[in-house]
């Protein structure tokens, strides 16, 4: 049962168009990435800015199709934790929650069934029925996070964000997300913070110039990554 990996990348490369023009040059955001993800893994992704970490997440999510290499995935749902997807300013919080949920792959009845939970978690009260153009930044973050939390993929992909909002809500959203992460969900987590990677992950992969350089235990990978960074700086 545990034998086959959930997702397996072999020498995957992804190329983007540099400009919108016929025959415009392409650049390889991912050159050659190989990794395996097993059920229950909590994989951290480390690497410098522009190394291709976010592209890797979107490839895992199935948003980007690789231009070379192979990707094999078990039939599991795999989603990026995305905030405020498809939000429209003139719609109410309720309508935006439904629209966003549908865009994130939920069925209408699923998202309708979760509206009470969204309303409660976001603490928006009567504002839930108001257009989100009237919301403060903090209220917007509450709604966005509460909706995103309702999508419960089997593989959760997180790009930096572990919590949002003001101090109170940051505490609450962070706790909810950590509960999800440590509740057995398979997680891939991109972060620049060693502390967060150590806290969240049990394995790590190091990406450099679009290549997977090393995969292994968190401490071991972080140590090698920092050693290389220091060598490059010196």
């Amino acid at each position: 049962m545990n034998a086959a990996p959930l997702i397996c990348l072999e020498n995957v490369g992804v190329a983007f168009n540099a400009r919108v023009a016929v025959g415009a040059p392409r650049f390889w955001a991912l050159e050659d990435v190989s990794l395996t993800l097993d059920r229950g893994d909590r994989l951290g992704v480390v690497g410098r800015n522009g190394a291709g970490k976010s592209t890797l997440l979107r490839t895992l999510a199935g948003i980007i199709t690789p231009d070379r290499g192979r990707i094999a995935r078990a039939p599991v749902t795999c989603q990026l934790l995305s905030l405020a997807v498809g939000f429209m300013p003139h719609l109410s919080g309720r309508d935006n929650a439904i629209l966003s949920g549908l865009l994130l792959g939920l069925r209408r009845r699923d998202i309708e069934g979760r509206l009470p939970a969204i309303l409660e978690f976001s603490e928006l009260g009567d504002f839930f029925e108001q257009p989100i153009s009237t919301y403060s930044t903090g209220m917007m973050a509450r709604l966005a996070f509460s909706v995103a939390l309702q999508v419960e993929p089997e593989v959760l992909l997180i790009d930096e964000i572990l919590s949002v909002g003001d101090a109170d809500f940051a505490q609450k959203s962070g706790a909810a997300l950590r509960a999800r992460i440590h509740g057995g969900t398979t997680v891939v987590f991109v972060s620049h913070s060693d502390r967060q990677i150590r806290e969240v992950c049990d394995r790590a992969v190091w990406i450099e110039h679009g290549r997977s350089v090393m995969q292994g235990g968190v401490d071991e990978v972080l140590k090698a990554y920092h050693a290389a960074s220091r060598a490059a700086a010196a």
Binding site: M88, P89, H90, L91, L99, L102, R107, R108
Partner: peptide
Amino acid sequence: IELTLFATYAELRA
């Protein structure tokens, strides 16, 4: 179909 219909409603409403 659900997504398309709801997004249409949202578009008209907005």
